[in-house]
Amino acid sequence: MMTWFTDPLQFDFIMRAMAAAVIVGVICSVLGVYVVLRGMAFLGDALAHTILPGVVIAFLIGWPLAVGALIFGVLTAVGIGVLTDRGDLKEDTAIGVIFAGFFALGVALLSASGNYTLDLAHFLFGNLLGVSTSDLWMISVLGGIVLLTILLFYKEFLVISFDMILAATLRLPVTFLRYLLLILIAITIVASLQVVGIALMLAMFVTPAAAASLLTRRLPTMMLVSALIGIFSGITGVYASFYWNIASGPAVVLVATAVFILTFLLAPGRGVVWRYSK
């Protein structure tokens, strides 16, 4: 039985995959708490897709992927701002237009360059078992930046998530904080690209945090529980991927989804089963 757990760990590529899955599980799940509380799920999903052209351009000209992704992440945020500013378009409409347009641009750029299907599959669904040592470094540095920023702006992010008018009366730099949160999401997406890929990124933001919201009543504990679910999903997903040859991204997401369903049914006080048995 023990060897079932330890066997895969002999392989370096599995160890790297585990490390990447754990780091990504933590940052996505912690940042995801804000995504869930602020109702930014659609925006998060859109950002995951709109950074594709940036990543592809950076990939083609040999720049760090993070730089291309950040440029298009900021372009998305500014674009949504410009489209909704005059009040003629609703925010979700503006997000939808930019979401689809940028994603199409990314796929078009990729299709015009050589190895289309393989690269597209990797961008869309991740390539966890192909994480290199330098990838792992990049993921660690980006993850560190995200967690440190959340720590530094913890109380300000809490206020803008709970009560925007309070943020205004306290004279907090609200616009700056909102853009900062978007940039953190963009950075996290870049860090997570190889682990879950664009198509399933949303699950890593929303699912662990949603499960955690059913189990906790304070923000710090919600972040902690969300991170633990993220870590568990990452590690279990890698095992599933190794033994049953499932694509790693979907494996990680399926574990997180299973955790959510169990929580939804069994959460003390708030789960479905709990309510029925009363």
Partner: peptide, 21 residues
Amino acid sequence: QFPVTVEDVVMMGRVGRIGLF
């Protein structure tokens, strides 16, 4: 439903005076 306690909410009133970082 927001995951904050009563004292967390009241502490938010202090954020402007505590200052960044």
